[in-house]
Design a protein around this nucleic acid. Structure first.
Lengths: 238, 238, 238, 238
DNA sequence: CATGAATGAGAGTTCATTCAT
DNA sequence: GATGAATGAACTCTCATTCAT
């Protein structure tokens, strides 16, 4: 179900993708047609890629249909219209990151390790599943019009906030963290530090000629962990 | 230079501005030379708003012409095509933020104050001139296609990097900062912390129900300053 | 045979019935034979409503299937395609009005009463079964393409013409009607006077602000009867 | 400005009109391009034909553009969307018939002649400009949705009603008409009798095998005039 | 210098119709 | 006999861009 996201090294639409030929190679596997669940999933995956690569206005239903290997009308029959498809893709991006965070199992690690692991996971998820960042950028560019209408989006987030709260409490009890830090603010700080360098990779490259590669990523992960830990650490005089 | 920015409380395009065609008969060319410069400026300002509000694909030349009070052919005669107009607007966003940073005069402040002032300025600029963040988001969504072609964009940035380098050196010499911090990394950290909460204001609101208002901003500015300073501070044992 | 007719106070399609998908799990086939007839009947009734409400081009097979409570393929298997379904609905409209006229039993009434009864029935049938008028309008708008292919449509009409002929003859013999009136022309005159105010109800309302309600209908029925009788009456000098 | 309306002997869309070739013959007369008024007029004329021939749902913007010799976007820029274009065509149909009625100059004819002339004109206008009847049928099929929104449609009609009122008054004063006839009812009666045989020409042909030709028309005009006059005539005993 | 008029190419969406079970 | 799944072909409408003045 995982697939590559052509986020860097993308060309202008006109230059790429004219006649995909993916369609031709599809017929033989005739056994798996007429499977509603599979079609729906394929559409959702393709939408995530298309919307995150080209934005809301730039995304093309034609391309989504082609990538999903279905016809356009099927998309409309499952999702209604472009906006609702976009909403489904946006929600899916949140679901995916939360699944990863849940697997981190922060509750059973010592507080400092837990923080560093969360930082590392966040940075790498942003890097490896770039559609999350892209979907968020797109949605914020649109003024949050859509996310306001996704009813359960706060519920998707809340388990992590709960984990962070108990994590902070444990750290304070153990004397390794300062008191008075809100879990939400902590998460926003971590997200901020992980988000920007990846989200803004291309402009940073142009402006600073900084290479955003694996080595840089490792180094940056350490730096961010360090920064957060130092921020959480109790003042020395205490 | 002044313009209204409809960044928050934005409506769907369909709901607003349908066919206003307010364009009344232009006033009879007072001085040909001045009008040309004025038209060009008006087009640039309108582009900045349009592109940052709706993204590259979502921006409409019609709307830019209307907002600038000129005809569409004039835009084409001045800027070539949509992509070149977009490039001009993107460059303009960078020019504006650098002008603000230059006025900060970091060289003549004590290092910690300088850092806190830079944080505060950055946060507030992002907040008050939202088209900067929006343009960067848009450009990164597009894979940096355009910024790579703007030749002098690194030059626009370099004075700040130089200032930061000497600021860090001064801090180290005075014993208030750790050595070994790269000015670029420092800037990226500051930018990260300031960028994310504002860029992602709308999704954060939906996910955390966090109010992003002036009070929050003041508090956040302090927190970020604190975070950066703690990161720069020498270790206690030294 | 009973069905709701939404002819007045109709909404735009977009406003109504979007995706009701009320189609709950069909009840488990009680008697295969009966169900087939029932399904066919339901499809025909639904078609009459749909075609008369939205016209030939505006009618939607989806809607007919939904209203009839059957699947679309079933419609195709019974009726062939949209055009043939339309033809069946059109024929049905004629069958219905002739059934009503037969029940009038004109042969056993005195001539003037018979005429007035026919006028009254015609006006009220047009009013109460509006799909008849709508189907005729639709078909004439299409240039009669379909009715020309319905072989027995003239047969459906002929009994009434025969009745009218003998009615006119009786009236002439009794000295209450002029001679020389053709039954076809008489029927066309009556139909004309009854058809127009109802068929064109909506435009008349807009143009004359005339209320087309029950009181108006009673008055109109009298007027039309009067007009026809005066036309049939022998000249005074005779 | 007058053009033929292919109302009878029409084919299915698929069979006709594929590549018009009207376009090719158009270029030479290059002098008349870029004329907004002419373009608008051409679009309106073409719309009247298209909408009246195929109905609201059946009309195709492509065809209108082709017949008018303009591009589709031009239509949208002048008229907004299909509904507004339809509204303009509907209004135009009313304007045209009123222009004809005004030229009849009923005020200066003796009452009975005036009535007969009005009948004759109405019947012939319905016959010769079939788009009037077709537009009315179409609009009534749609429930009058559009005509209710045309503000001045009642004004277009009122001059005729005024003329009819004074005509009836003159007739009563001269002793040739009964008193108590409302001008609106009179007009509706005349319109009814003229409308139906032409509007329903195709179904009548199929049902009665009646030929609707020039001879029939002359005869019918006389009959209708006679019917109306007899209805207006004072009762003999008076 | 400036623009009203016009359009080619394509986007989202719909709908009659068929396939596979 | 009946249907959920799927689609080709159109259709309305939009938008960057150019023409003619």
């Amino acid at each position: 179900m995982a697939k590559n996201l052509p986020i860097s090294g993308r060309q202008t639409r006109a230059a790429s993708s004219r006649k995909s030929s993916v369609r031709t190679a599809r017929k033989p596997a005739q056994s798996q047609k007429r499977d509603a669940a599979r079609s729906k999933r394929a559409i959702l995956d393709a939408s995530l890629i298309e919307f995150s690569t080209y934005g809301h206005a730039g995304a093309r239903i034609d391309m989504i249909a082609e990538r999903a290997g279905v016809s356009k009308p099927l998309i409309y029959s499952y999702f209604g219209d472009k906006d609702q498809l976009y909403a489904a893709a946006l929600r899916e991006a949140y679901v995916q990151i939360r699944e990863g965070e849940r697997d981190l199992d922060l509750d059973h690690k010592d507080p400092e390790t837990a923080i560093r692991d969360l930082v590392d996971f966040t940075l790498r998820h942003f890097m490896q599943k770039p559609w999350f960042i892209s979907m968020l950028n797109t949605e914020n560019l649109r003024g949050g019009e859509t996310i306001r209408q996704i009813k359960d989006v706060a519920d998707i987030q809340s388990p992590l906030t709960d984990e962070l709260r108990s994590l902070l409490d444990r750290g304070v009890a153990m004397g390794v963290f300062r008191p008075g830090i809100a879990p939400t603010d902590l998460y926003i700080s971590i997200a901020s530090l992980c988000y920007f360098p990846i989200s803004n990779m291309h402009t940073l490259r142009a402006v600073f000629h900084a290479p955003i590669d694996d080595a840089w990523l490792d180094q940056r992960s350490d730096d961010i962990g360090e920064m957060v830990i130092r921020f959480l650490r109790p003042d020395p005089k205490d």
